[in-house]
Design a protein around this nucleic acid. Structure first.
Length: 532
RNA sequence: GCCUUGUUAGUGUAGCGCGGCCCAGCAUGAAAGGCUCUCACCCUUUUGACACGGGUUCAAAUCCCGUACAAGGCACCA
């Protein structure tokens, strides 16, 4: 028996033919998680800064953690990293690029996580844990592992660059504690003093020399109000919380690589067990993804809102008709590579199409319409009957009736087709899909002139006629359609009348144009978002 | 300037800890053909990569050194 015969047989039996082709679907998924020895409950954490909704880059971190939590039957903690770092002075001045908490972001983030199918077991706010950081900071000072420094940033930089200790490094513990008290009590103002960790001023890496772990901000906190004057730096708060919350595995972007050193340094001081730390590379989309940047563009009115497709927020992807499963698949396939990458959105689209193709009903749509006049049509009425979805024939046919007056008819074709028709198809047969065959006579200005040839598909097939889409020019028989593209541009055209039966949120395919998600439907206009 | 990561086909990734089974796998894209009243889907075929230069070795994508390029840190941002 030949291989083909086997294939046919096995097909009938419903056996996966791909096995015979040697195309074993490679076992997909993440590599095994390291550092599981002696771990009872692998525990992971999501640590979003609530400055805006999750974007695709945040989603990488989120999905990686969630996948591993699910894979290992572990626990996932959502910990809002909502400490305040920026001073009140800076915020009041509206400094550009300043990071701050957006109160709505907490919900937008939860919404994005739920949409992604992330299941977290516990929710924690850093802003509820301020006393804990204060306590541990105090301990570090008492142990002489940290000190109060009142250098200006510029002065400290000089010491740092020269690998020299600043004068405050030699302070007695009691003096540092007194400074610490002044910070807490508000006797020191913003910028007057910080607490530095004694990692060493002679470290090779200047970024690691006696880093700040606590500083002053008098800015009110959107959640807890104005109760606190000192705030921990991210790496310090995490050094404490990763231990206290029992995080066994830290998966974060490689922008946080330097934090590893500081966290481990502190873990060693307190003789805490080290968590396993892993990093993934950062995503870009031809531009740097940033919640803060997005927020500024939304505020400036440059973007239409948090669901503007250019932000690549979960909200915007949902609106576009991207399926969360497709995002998860794409991100998981990328693994935890440390390489920074251009987000492979084409792979995302391919994965998404696999999911939505069968459920997306087909419709005729012509972008930027150009008129075609057809003469010599023998009948007075036609009814085009295209399949609702060729992948699901059981869905049946839709109907597009056309009325002909005095043997002539005007229809719209897309500008794209107009251009190729104009240059390459004069005198040739063209098939108007599911309708009739015509021959293109001439073009004048922005108009095509054609003559009726025949009805049947067969003759069009024989002549290998180009098949194009069309929409009736009769306003009673079409509807205006506008599509928001991925780059924020608005595409306009006409679609077949049947579009009016669509529901909000429905996924459709505009044949030979794109998949789209219907945003709103009414007689005067259909609005949709471009999917891919 | 200092420090740290990273560099596999157009794109994304597998392989690299323990060098040979890798004349490098997969996905996506592109090209051609088939199917099809969509330039969709499906099927077939083709395409194309170990950044560069040295070294170690019988043998290197895998180890070592150097160079280039990229990203990140050197912030009282996260």
């Amino acid at each position: 028996m030949g291989i083909d015969a086997i294939k046919t047989e096995t097909l009938d039996l419903g056996i996966d033919v791909s096995l015979l082709n040697g195309k074993h679907e490679e076992k997909k998924g993440l590599p095994p998680l390291p550092g599981l020895d002696g771990v009872k409950v692998p525990t992971f954490r999501l640590a979003p800064f609530p400055s805006g909704p999750l974007h695709i880059g945040n989603a990488r971190m989120v999905i990686l953690n969630d996948e591993y939590a699910k894979l290992t039957n572990g626990k996932l903690i959502l910990c809002f990293d909502d400490t305040i770092g920026t001073t009140k002075k800076k915020l009041d001045a509206g400094a550009s690029g300043a990071k701050f908490i957006l109160p709505e972001a907490y919900d937008m983030i939860r919404e994005g996580l739920e949409w992604l199918g992330v299941e977290w077991d516990e929710e924690v706010y850093k802003s509820d844990r301020l006393e804990i950081y204060n306590d541990y900071c105090q301990k570090l000072i008492e142990q002489d592992n940290a000190y109060t420094c009142t250098c200006t940033p510029a002065d400290f930089k000089k010491f740092k660059d020269g690998k020299q200790p600043c004068p405050h490094r030699q302070l007695r513990v009691s003096e540092s504690l007194e400074g610490w008290r002044k910070m807490i009590d508000g006797e020191y103002g913003e910028g007057d003093a910080v607490i530095r960790l004694k990692t060493g001023m002679d470290l090779d890496d200047p970024a690691l020399r006696d880093p700040v772990i606590m500083r002053i901000s008098w800015a009110p906190h959107p959640r807890i109000g104005n109760v606190n004057k000192v705030w921990p730096m991210l790496e310090f708060s995490w050094a404490i919380d990763d231990h206290l919350l029992g995080i066994t595995h830290i998966i974060r972007g490689k922008d946080l690589l330097k934090e590893d050193y500081i966290e481990r340094f502190i873990w060693d001081i307190f003789k805490w067990k080290h968590s396993e730390i892993m990093h993934h590379g950062l995503l870009s989309l031809g531009f740097k993804l940033s919640k803060t940047r997005a927020r500024e563009k939304v505020k400036a009115g440059e973007y239409s809102g948090w669901s503007d497709p250019r932000i690549w927020s979960m909200q915007s992807l949902e609106k576009r008709g991207i399926q969360p499963e497709a995002i998860r698949k794409t991100l998981v396939d990328m693994g935890i590579s440390m390489t920074d990458v251009d987000f492979p959105y084409k792979i995302l689209y391919a994965e998404n199409q696999k999911i939505i193709d069968k459920e997306s009903d087909r419709f005729f749509f012509v972008e930027d319409p150009v008129m075609m006049e057809i003469l010599g049509i023998p009948k007075e009425e036609y009814i085009a009957k295209p399949l609702v979805n060729p992948l699901v024939p059981t869905k049946g046919y839709r109907e597009i009736p056309i009325k002909i007056q005095d043997g002539s008819k005007e229809i719209f074709v897309s500008r794209g087709d107009f251009k190729t028709l104009k240059s390459d198809f004069r005198g040739k047969m063209i098939r108007l899909k599911d309708l009739i065959n015509v021959i293109l006579d001439s073009t004048r200005d922005e108009r095509l002139f054609a003559r009726y040839l025949s009805d049947d598909l067969e003759s069009a097939r024989n002549k290998k006629a180009k098949i194009i889409h069309w929409v009736d020019t009769d306003p009673k028989n079409h509807v205006k359609v506008s599509i928001m593209m991925a780059d924020g541009a608005l595409i306009q055209g006409f679609g077949e009348k049947n579009l009016l039966s669509c529901e909000e949120g429905q996924l459709v395919q505009f044949e030979r144009f794109c998949f789209a998600k219907i945003q709103s439907v009414n007689e005067s206009e259909i609005r949709a978002f471009f999917t891919h």
